[in-house]
Design a protein around this nucleic acid. Sequence first.
DNA 1: AAGTGCTTCGGGAAATTTGCCCGAATATGC
DNA 2: GCATATTCGGGCAAATTTCCCGAAGCACTT
Lengths: 217, 217
Amino acid sequence: MTELDAKGISVLLVDDHPIVRQGYRRVLESQGDLHVVAEADNAADAYAAFKAHDPDVVVMDISMPGASGLEAIRNIRARNPRARVLVFTMHNEAVLVKSAFNAGANGFVTKSSEPSAVVRAIRSVARGERAMSDDIAHVLAEESLSPTGSVLDQLGEREIEILRQFASGATTEQIASHLNLSVKTVQNYHYLIKTKTGARTDAQLVRLAATCGLTKI
Amino acid sequence: MTELDAKGISVLLVDDHPIVRQGYRRVLESQGDLHVVAEADNAADAYAAFKAHDPDVVVMDISMPGASGLEAIRNIRARNPRARVLVFTMHNEAVLVKSAFNAGANGFVTKSSEPSAVVRAIRSVARGERAMSDDIAHVLAEESLSPTGSVLDQLGEREIEILRQFASGATTEQIASHLNLSVKTVQNYHYLIKTKTGARTDAQLVRLAATCGLTKI
DNA sequence: AAGTGCTTCGGGAAATTTGCCCGAATATGC
DNA sequence: GCATATTCGGGCAAATTTCCCGAAGCACTT
């Protein structure tokens, strides 16, 4: 392994878009020390390719059709704890970032990042360090200022129930009727939930509820 | 222009992800006859770059933060009807494809396409032909066969675009700014969309947009 | 037993949005 | 040329949201 490191860093590329993979490959290969030893376009193939090639770093987009990229990360880290996984995606939601790190990711950079920053991140995780792009750091920093973990942890039981019903399409009157509350109280909860979660619009609230599994769409 | 064509095809790359742009650039440049003369990461810059470089083909992702890519297509085609625009995005919803062609796009390929297919599409639109990737053709074919009108069929293009942005979490002010409309107009559209679709709450609107594939959650 | 903190429940008032009317400019179709 | 659909916004009353506030019930601590 140390010999391999001396010769460079082997990379497994995982992304569901062929041309994006090809783009990565060219960018990374042009660095000299980075070698793409395999590619995959889904979570299952990613794990198979990892077992076959045992790369130093897995660079993967976790928003792929089919199985979850997070599951792939867990599998990879479970098989070889010395494996390094750098998540590379367009999403920048705090919950997703935390999920990725909890799943065992070593780094998280967004596709908005400069290629140089991505390359730097690959070298960082290869050295065993944690890496993340500036925008991700900002998102997490903001999040950390609210003393809670998951977005839902900061909500009380009543608030969660109201959020669930609201995100499922219920009107304020219906919720009030269901829970035997005054319309005014439901409105107040609605507002409270928005401020607590930081959602600016009802649409963001629905998306939040959906990503937290509170409601299915 | 014929001389230029003989020497190759000049391309303006528009995508909000730097590394993706760099990837395209390398893939296209490796073809020999394709030359990336400029890049842009948003709709406004795209139009400016088009005016400055007058490229043969504009390859653009229409899902960018800020102003609509569709608007950029309209502007570009309005300025120079001989311009060719190839939309290159990860979305594959029939409505979006139709909107793009109505806006003046000459081609539409998804990022799931093989790089070779993308290159072929660029050459096609450069020759003035219409181009689309196989998956897009299938989506449109399916659409034309299904007698059941989607809920979205009763909405105009503008309404769909506003619904998409709204369901994606944009505020009324942001949408108005993106599309250069007055806040009042966006509010009116919002109301119109609700009545046309029968949605009673914003949450139902978001769910509708999601089930129609207008937005991902 | 009193204090602290949290959740739950609502009132009040200003700001904003909704709901629904309208007219006008511009395609688009026949 | 005429009808029709789409796009764009003004106006205005009604409704809702926003943001403040207090209070009651509970659990947990010292």
